[in-house]
Amino acid sequence: MLAADQYLMVGVVLFGIGVIGFLTRRNVVVLLMCIELMINGAGLAFVSFCRQTGSLEGQVFVLFAMVIASVEIAVGLSIVLLVFRNRATLDVDEMEVLKW
């Protein structure tokens, strides 16, 4: 049986992988996946805090966060589709019409 602290560490690591991935990868779909990792890392943190504090609010929060994450991905992917239809590319570095 793992302690709640260890779950928290996994959450932090997931969040960190998400952040690093977002900052280093260039493919739009991978970026959305990294955001998903960040949100789920936060979710894991919520659940482990729930265990520690004995309140239920954190678990309720995770359910809502999952819904929000899926809505974000649904909107995100439809915009990605629009991008791909226009430019046939998913590389963020090639989206540079709007610049300084």
Partner: peptide, 13 residues
Amino acid sequence: SGFLLFGIALVYG
């Protein structure tokens, strides 16, 4: 939003 959510988790914790 990811940062915000993780921040909220820590504040809750």
